[in-house]
Nucleic acid binder design. Structure first.
Lengths: 234, 234
DNA sequence: TTAAAAAGTTAGACTAATCTAACTTACAAA
DNA sequence: TTTGTAAGTTAGATTAGTCTAACTTTTTAA
């Protein structure tokens, strides 16, 4: 503002530290680059809800700070420095989410936006204490891994529910969409991270899947939904 | 921001909500107006570490938002709306401090700057849960009262240690200075909020005071220090 | 293979919060 | 009561992050 514009006065922005805005760009680039490696300006603009030129100018800034590598009309890639920064923010976000669910007993579908704010709190001590209080957890309430203090991530070998065969029993390990509406939808179907479910039937004509949830109830999940649910095989 | 200026995108700044900067002005005006009623532009500028014209322009903005009443070359006063806002921020700050000390086991002298960040988190649910988790406390770790959800404050009838008579036994209820150096100084003298102490001797030539602390040790406190320590009489 | 569409960039403007320099008002002391 | 100093204001500039409009490059698909 933060933003951190204003932030100038309020305990962040010392030395080489990025503004809140920069932090959000870096985090978003990281989350978009899990797969293909390079992130496009328009993907970023869409995710951050800003226009293309805004992204172009911010990317130039991040590039001059060596957080990303970038050439005009080409994709954006985080540098090692940028990745480290991203992991630090993601660590804070996920610790915050788990804290909100476990300690403050808030619902897993409502914690994301509070965590979006907490992730920018500048205090290693604060986060290390939360980590300790939670017993050095490996995953957040959405099933996503929590990087440790050194940015190391325990990786799980999850696959999207859409790729599981009929008849298989699997455990929901993560969801690929933080939106409250998506999480509410899953809750309404009686689904939570950590639940074991069985794939009853896969409809080939539209990609939807019938599953049996923890409460033994059968529900249909659309193709869009099953692509966003990650599961561990047994 | 900090921007949340930047904040635009990041969950604060919806509707009539003030920016992080505005919140800081309001909180500061409140804390400066405990006594005389009106706050001067230069007091504010000093406390916020900005120049006079910056304050003038921000005050105009706050005035147009009806948060303060103000006429050029006159003092600044919070409106009822402004007071309500200030109490809400102060509530968050003090709940945050107590949470950091009680739950995260951080030292009372180090929590202030983390709380400065947490106080801007925008989520009533978050703070209400912390309030609940702490058992609806009435005072923060510095002994300052915590406003309740409706902005009501339990008032204590404390007086500065400098005004206590020789021989009296009192309980430290608050300190009038959040600076880490001040809190460290008290810690080094074996003094904490809540401690019972006895006034052994008052030196009239320089206003310093000899006290017996909880551990039965005698220490000297300078005039500047005893003016900033608030105590409850028995 | 080329032309239309999509993606990206440049230029220029805006807002919030800040600053410095110059001016005005208030007030205290002679 | 005047006047010099301190406090406050106005004007104009600056920076971060954003925008729209116009232009350029890349990709796609005919």
């Amino acid at each position: 503002m933060n933003n951190l514009f204003f932030v100038r006065k309020f305990s962040r922005n010392f030395e080489g530290m990025g503004s809140l805005t920069e932090e959000n760009y870096i985090k978003t680039i990281y989350s978009l680059s899990v797969e293909p490696g390079e992130v496009s300006v328009s993907e970023l603009a869409k995710k951050l809800n800003v226009k293309l030129p805004t992204v172009t100018s911010m990317i130039k800034k991040l590039s001059s700070k060596k957080m990303v590598s970038y050439a005009p009309y080409r994709g954006i890639k985080l540098s090692e420095k940028g990745k480290k920064e991203a992991l630090s923010i993601i660590r804070k976000h996920r610790l915050a989410e788990l804290f909100l669910v476990k300690i403050l007993k808030l619902g897993w579908e409502e914690v994301h936006e509070i965590a979006e704010q907490l992730e920018h709190v500048n205090s290693e001590r604060f986060y290390n204490r939360i980590d300790e209080l939670l017993g050095y957890p490996k995953a957040d309430p959405h099933g996503e891994p929590i990087p440790d203090v050194n940015g190391r991530v325990t990786s799980f070998k999850s696959i999207p529910l859409s790729q599981v065969e009929e008849g298989a029993s699997v455990k929901i390990s993560a969801v690929g969409n933080d939106a409250k509406s998506f999480l509410d939808h899953l809750n309404s179907k009686g689904l939570q991270i950590g639940d074991s479910i069985t794939i009853k039937r896969k409809e080939s004509f539209d990609g939807s899947v019938a599953i049996i949830n923890k409460a033994k109830k059968e529900t249909m999940l659309s193709h869009q939904v099953v692509e966003k649910i990650w599961v561990d095989l047994y």
